[in-house]
Amino acid sequence: RPRTRITDDQLKILRAYFDINNSPSEEQIQEMAEKSGLSQKVIKHWFRNTLFKERQ
C-alpha cells in the first residue's frame, strides 16, 4: 500500500480534533474521515503516531 500524503487542509482538521481530544470515538473518526477525505485507518494511525510523539 502506498504511503498516504496528508495535505495541509487535512492536517488542520486532524489537529483541531487532536487539540480537543487526543482519543476520538469511532463516531468522531468517521466524521473526520468524511470531512478530510482520509480513510478511518489513516486517521487512527495518525492519532496513534501523534500521541506517541507528544508523549516523548
Rank of each mutant, 00 (worst) to 15 (best):
R1V: 05
R1H: 05
R1P: 01
R1C: 11
R1L: 08
R1T: 07
P2Q: 15
P2R: 09
P2W: 00
P2F: 15
P2G: 13
P2I: 09
R3C: 03
R3M: 15
R3K: 12
R3A: 08
R3S: 14
T4F: 13
T4V: 08
T4A: 04
T4M: 15
T4G: 04
T4K: 03
T4L: 12
T4E: 08
T4N: 15
T4S: 05
R5F: 14
R5S: 14
R5C: 15
R5A: 04
R5L: 15
I6R: 01
I6F: 12
I6D: 07
I6Q: 02
I6T: 04
I6K: 02
I6L: 12
I6G: 02
I6E: 06
I6M: 15
T7G: 05
T7A: 13
T7V: 05
T7L: 04
T7F: 03
T7H: 03
D8R: 06
D8C: 13
D8V: 11
D8T: 06
D8Q: 14
D9M: 09
D9S: 14
D9E: 12
D9V: 06
D9K: 09
D9F: 14
D9A: 14
D9Q: 09
D9I: 11
Q10R: 01
Q10I: 02
Q10S: 06
Q10N: 08
Q10V: 03
Q10T: 04
Q10M: 03
L11P: 00
L11T: 08
L11W: 05
L11Y: 15
L11C: 02
K12P: 06
K12T: 10
K12I: 08
K12V: 10
K12F: 05
K12W: 02
K12M: 09
I13S: 05
I13P: 01
I13N: 05
I13Y: 11
L14M: 07
L14Q: 00
L14I: 02
L14V: 04
L14S: 00
L14F: 03
L14N: 00
R15Q: 13
R15T: 09
R15N: 09
R15L: 09
R15E: 08
R15P: 00
R15M: 15
A16L: 10
A16M: 15
A16E: 15
A16W: 04
A16K: 07
A16F: 07
Y17I: 06
Y17Q: 09
Y17D: 06
Y17T: 10
Y17F: 13
Y17V: 05
F18W: 07
F18H: 08
F18A: 11
F18K: 10
F18L: 14
F18D: 04
F18N: 04
F18S: 07
F18M: 10
D19H: 03
D19I: 10
D19S: 15
D19W: 02
I20M: 12
I20L: 10
I20Y: 08
I20D: 04
I20T: 14
I20S: 10
I20A: 14
N21V: 05
N21R: 05
N21E: 14
N21F: 05
N22T: 03
N22P: 15
N22V: 14
S23H: 15
S23I: 01
S23E: 14
S23Q: 12
S23C: 12
S23D: 07
S23K: 12
S23A: 13
S23F: 12
P24V: 03
P24T: 02
P24L: 04
P24N: 01
P24D: 00
P24W: 02
P24G: 00
P24A: 03
S25T: 02
E26S: 09
E26Y: 13
E26M: 11
E26Q: 12
E27W: 13
E27N: 15
E27K: 10
E27C: 10
E27M: 14
E27D: 06
E27L: 05
E27I: 04
E27Q: 15
E27H: 01
Q28S: 08
Q28R: 13
Q28T: 11
Q28E: 06
I29L: 12
I29N: 02
I29E: 11
I29K: 04
I29F: 11
I29C: 07
I29W: 06
I29S: 02
Q30M: 14
Q30S: 06
Q30D: 02
Q30A: 11
Q30H: 09
Q30P: 07
E31S: 09
E31D: 09
E31Y: 06
E31I: 09
E31R: 12
E31T: 06
E31P: 03
E31G: 08
E31V: 11
E31F: 05
E31M: 10
E31L: 09
M32F: 01
M32G: 01
M32R: 00
M32H: 01
M32I: 04
A33H: 15
A33Q: 15
A33K: 07
E34Q: 12
E34M: 05
K35D: 03
K35N: 04
K35W: 01
K35L: 04
K35T: 04
K35A: 04
K35I: 01
K35M: 03
S36E: 04
S36R: 01
S36K: 00
S36T: 08
S36L: 05
S36W: 02
G37E: 09
G37D: 09
G37T: 09
G37R: 11
L38V: 08
L38P: 00
L38G: 01
L38F: 00
L38A: 10
L38E: 01
L38Y: 02
S39H: 07
S39G: 04
S39K: 14
S39N: 05
S39C: 02
S39Y: 07
Q40S: 08
Q40W: 08
Q40D: 04
Q40H: 06
Q40T: 05
Q40N: 05
Q40M: 13
Q40I: 09
K41T: 08
K41Y: 10
K41S: 07
V42Y: 10
V42K: 09
V42T: 10
V42H: 09
V42D: 14
V42E: 13
V42L: 09
I43S: 00
I43E: 00
I43K: 00
K44E: 11
K44C: 05
K44Q: 03
K44M: 08
K44H: 10
H45G: 11
H45L: 10
H45Q: 12
H45W: 13
H45A: 11
H45E: 14
H45C: 06
H45T: 12
W46K: 01
W46D: 03
W46E: 07
W46V: 05
W46M: 03
W46R: 01
F47I: 02
F47Q: 03
F47K: 01
F47S: 03
F47V: 10
F47M: 08
F47W: 05
F47R: 02
R48G: 10
R48N: 15
R48I: 06
R48A: 10
R48W: 05
N49H: 15
N49Y: 06
N49P: 02
N49T: 13
N49D: 14
N49F: 05
N49L: 06
T50Q: 13
T50E: 14
T50W: 08
T50H: 08
T50Y: 03
T50D: 14
T50L: 10
T50C: 05
L51P: 07
L51V: 13
L51C: 08
L51R: 08
L51T: 09
F52G: 13
F52Q: 12
F52L: 12
F52Y: 11
F52H: 13
F52T: 14
F52P: 14
F52K: 14
K53T: 10
K53Q: 09
K53D: 10
K53V: 06
K53P: 04
K53F: 04
K53N: 11
E54H: 04
E54G: 06
E54N: 06
E54D: 08
E54Q: 05
E54K: 06
R55F: 07
R55L: 09
R55C: 13
R55A: 11
R55G: 11
R55Q: 11
Q56C: 00
Q56H: 03
Q56V: 01
Q56S: 02
Q56R: 11
Q56A: 01
Q56E: 00
